[in-house]
Amino acid sequence: MNNRITSLFQSKKKNILSVYFTAGYPALDDTTTIISELDKNGVDLIEIGIPFSDPLADGPIIQQSGQKAIHNGMTISYLFNELKDTRNHTKIPLILMGYLNPILQFGVKAFCETCSRIGIDGLIIPDLPPDYYKLHFQDLFKEHNLCNIMLITPQTDDDRIKEIDSLSSGFIYMVSTNSITGANKTLEQQLPYFERVAKMKLKNPTLVGFGIHDRQTYQIATKYSNGAIIGSAFIKALKKSNLLDKPISDFVGRVGR
């Protein structure tokens, strides 16, 4: 079955730009506007964050955007409703990224079915461990043509990277440093890690995320990978304005599009 993420990586091997934002932030109904602005400005992939009260892997910027979004009334049901006609307007690959608990409460089966129906292409669930994925999620993801995008970090050893590669589809999310999102550790020091993973010749492409915030960091991150992911820095740019078109085009421009 064709999947928009898989197709993207088949046609484009380098300099892929993926942007993350939190659904329901700055305002409850901004989701579709942000998607179309990102699409218009040449972003390749979009990760829509489902806000969670206790996001363990996230730094202050994503935490606060999530808290605001929950306060604004964002829920999985609301988000699905907001996105139900999105595929009439855009072909850009869409990923949902969220913690496991809200998905469990929604119901895993119903969640996967709805994702597939409204045109979601992949999922990133950072606190879903590989073993549990195999037992309870893999068949549903396959049935609904959803890519399972898993994380690796500088601490992940080669054997585990291979295991994660075998369970992943779409791409592998390479966390750049030992940190939570939005941290500013030096990326240059991570080049040996990026190179080590590149030499492993994984079946999946790789995108580097965490700590990418401008053209320079984007270029370091993409030296050995297929592209990079920007989250906190993008959300920070949105924070400053309620008019979304200019900050979004300015931001994407600053990264080099």
């Binding site: 892997a57 549990y132 994380l151 690796i152 966390v175």
Partner: peptide
Amino acid sequence: GAFIPEMLHH
């Protein structure tokens, strides 16, 4: 179980 992000796996 251990429902943790990969960053904590090590």
